[in-house]
């Protein structure tokens, strides 16, 4: 970002661009959450599993433009996540709160992610979405936090939000927090 751009950004004339990595296990609801955030776009009737990754851009009210890298959560594509760690300024980790059995897999992936060399150097914030809260019998955000061992993350800022990807409930709260973190 050049000086002029920085000046214009500080004046609020142009919006600052922020890269965000959206990760999580397959079937967690990452693409659904992003589709809910896209403005002026018809919601797709059926969401198919993401292959590789997809990029979406949307702007918020916080003078920020988010470029979200929606990564595929399938096991064979999870190795791709780490290639984006140097370039992103925040990570959004989506958890399927209705799937208790896979919480251990999510925890394992989170641990692997946090042990990454690049991520250990970069103290970027992590936003957790406990998705699918509309399904009965799911975990609460505190249970998700316990199942994933989030209390152990002490070297960076994080938060967890209860969301419903279908209605978009709770998603904006999370991105508000992220915007605050990124501004600071």
């Amino acid at each position: 970002m050049g000086i002029w751009s920085a000046f214009l950004t500080s004046l609020g004339i142009i919006k600052r661009k922020v890269n965000i990595l959206l990760v999580g296990l397959d079937n967690a609801g990452k693409s659904t959450i992003i589709n809910g955030l896209k403005l002026n776009a018809a919601a797709p009737t059926e969401i198919v599993p993401t292959v590789g990754f997809s990029v979406e851009t949307f702007s918020t009210q916080h003078r920020l433009t988010f470029t979200v890298f929606d990564m595929s959560g399938q096991g064979k594509y999870r190795d791709l996540w780490e290639y984006y760690f140097p370039d992103v300024e925040a990570i959004v980790f989506v958890i399927d709160a209705s799937d208790k059995a896979r919480a251990c897999v999510a925890r394992d992936e989170l641990e692997t992610m946090l042990e990454n060399k690049v991520l250990r150097m970069r103290k970027i914030p992590i936003l957790f979405f406990a998705n699918k809260m509309d399904i009965d019998g799911g975990m609460t955000p505190s249970e998700c936090s316990g199942a994933l061992g989030l209390e152990e993350i002490k070297d960076r800022n994080w938060t967890i939000c209860a969301t419903n990807g279908l209605t978009g409930q709770g998603v904006s709260n999370g991105f508000d927090w992220l915007a605050e973190e990124l501004k600071s």
Partner: peptide, 25 residues
Amino acid sequence: SQSTIRDSTSTLTEDSSDPVRHIPA
């Protein structure tokens, strides 16, 4: 055990719909 983790987090999260603020290390 993990139950204590849950206890500790439940003290932090009063309302599940609100984002839980994490305190740095």
